[in-house]
């Protein structure tokens, strides 16, 4: 009897919290798929429409923004995967003077991230003439302390005997890294890739500062300009644009959801 009451209370709590939490997003869906006049007027049988998405797509160069975001996300991801692998491998399996100190120096970047150093990073970029370029947006993010940390942890769990066996068979450093370590760290790579993609896809402040022209604007900056200036602040359009620009990421996450959560946990904190 008592447990039944408990269960009902528990379920009620769960349903209400999940509903409250999901509400803003559902509201945004409502506004995006209805005409503007229904944005703040909830008639249950209001006709659905895709008109807003078509208007948004035609009103601003969203396909260009998407391309820019994809390019910059991929540059950063590729560079992170390669550079972090190298550094992590050196720290996991080699002995060299000052390793401990150097590692803590790298870990400082977890705290003092490039996101807060906008003033001088902007000056640096201006000095080397990369303001208003996609490559300029990516530069501060090409290595990542977080990636180095995750991969070092993973590489350390690889049995040394595997490494030695490969060397006995005549594999050089690169072969060992590529044939032994990289395949064993696949879950970590996947988890890190998802974190990196979602961070870069969502990054706003730095690209906002660095870009001036639509040709290099990523989707977040394009969206903010559309929402404040170009849409004439029509809620239906703002919401359609908002959903449009986040859809690829949400879909990516839905596909990888379970694996993402499991991998991230295994790689990151134990």
């Amino acid at each position: 009897m008592k447990s039944t009451i408990n269960r009902i209370a528990y379920s009620t709590l769960a349903i209400s919290l999940a509903t409250v939490w999901g509400f803003p997003f559902i509201y945004s869906l409502w506004a995006a798929f209805h005409e503007e006049k229904y944005s703040a007027n909830f008639t249950w049988n209001a006709p659905l429409t895709l008109e807003n998405f078509a208007t948004v797509w035609a009103a601003a160069p969203f396909s260009l923004y998407f391309t820019n975001t994809v390019i910059l996300t991929l540059i950063i991801l590729a560079s992170n995967l390669i550079l972090c692998t190298l550094v992590a491998y050196a720290f996991a399996r080699y002995k060299f003077p000052g390793a401990g100190l150097l590692f803590s120096f790298i870990m400082v970047q977890l705290l003092i991230t490039p996101d807060i150093l906008i003033v001088e990073n902007y000056n640096t970029l201006a000095k080397i003439g990369l303001i208003d370029t996609i490559f300029g947006i990516t530069l501060p993010y090409l290595t990542s302390a977080f990636g180095i940390f995750l991969l070092r942890q993973t590489f350390k769990t690889v049995p040394i005997s595997l490494d030695e066996a490969a060397q006995v068979e005549g594999a050089n450093t690169w072969r060992v890294l590529w044939d032994v370590y990289v395949p064993l760290a696949k879950p970590t790579y996947l988890a890190y890739a998802l974190v990196s993609i979602s961070f870069q896809w969502n990054n706003f402040l730095w690209p906002l500062i660095v870009t001036n022209s639509p040709e290099v604007r990523p989707i977040t900056v394009g969206l903010s300009i559309f929402a404040t200036v170009e849409s004439g602040v029509e809620w239906a359009l703002v919401n359609a644009a908002t959903l449009l620009s986040t859809a690829p990421l949400v879909i990516l996450f839905l596909i990888f959801q379970r694996r993402f959560v499991a991998n991230f946990m295994r790689a990151g904190i134990k």
Partner: peptide
């Protein structure tokens, strides 16, 4: 899904949704 979705959205998108709210 309901709890995690806001985390997936860029802060810009979240801000737009709440601006309307």
């Amino acid at each position: 899904l309901s709890f995690f979705l806001p985390t997936m959205l860029p802060m810009i998108a979240v801000a737009n949704i709440w601006l309307f709210f």
